[in-house]
Amino acid sequence: MSEESKIPGHYFVLSLLKNIFSRTLRASNNVPRHVGFIMDGNRRWARKNDIEVKDGHEAGFHSMSRILELCYEAGVDTATVFAFSIENFKRSKYEVDSLMDLAQRRIKQITENGELTDKYGIRVRVIGDISLLDKDVLLDIQHATERTKNNTRATLNICFPYTGREEVVHSMKDVITENYSPSEINEDLIDSHLYTGGLPPLDLLIRTSGVSRLSDFMIWQGSKKGVRIELLDCLWPEFGPLRMGWILLKFAFRKSYSNSKEVIDEDYEEEEEEEESVDKKKYI
């Protein structure tokens, strides 16, 4: 967007505004701590604009990095992106290969150039059933995760290749092999053995392209009570920082509203109780 404009200083003003906005949100103390993204619609976008599917995925990647930048700046602790589903192996071999290739290059780029990761101190993790990947892809991934593993301020989970059901089963298996006694097995234990174990709980889940399904993404975490699910009509490459900012603002507003409402309701209840007790005393 900003590259197209010819007004001098345009880019500077935009980034300044973005900065102020994200810091303001951060000051609200109510930004989501863990955001999940289902990046849907790259191919439809490519078809719509008459370009190759591969370029659609590229555009999707750019939009992802812009959005993540805003998120981390606003104080989001963890972002989880759905890059590749286990079901995606059903696609044509050519596309699967190009997706693999893209992911491999991008993971390298994110970590080696270190623009995003170093600036925000992001630890990159690749989660999912990585045993399904080719050897050289796996090697690159290991390399990348090694490089950023000491960053502690934020986390980026790349789900590659992933399905929610596989994650749950994986966690069950882990729990079983670690030989806990049956009485020790509970929800939190399964929770902590998920790929996202140890990270803050999911607060916000965003899906683009107007589809109202989870498509097997974070089903365990996303079905919890209180997780906000936003379904958007735009395709992923069209989903820019502006819309993301809007969603974050909405989230912060609702959260701080419900927080202060809770406190107030409690106050009122106490008041009412006091009144009641006063009434009782009168009767006595």
Partner: peptide, 19 residues
């Protein structure tokens, strides 16, 4: 008022359409 799955059985919402 806004989509919250309220702990609906997670295994059973894989491809379920929400409205």
């Amino acid at each position: 008022p806004s989509l919250d799955l309220q702990g609906y059985p997670p295994w059973h919402i894989r491809l379920t359409e929400f409205f």
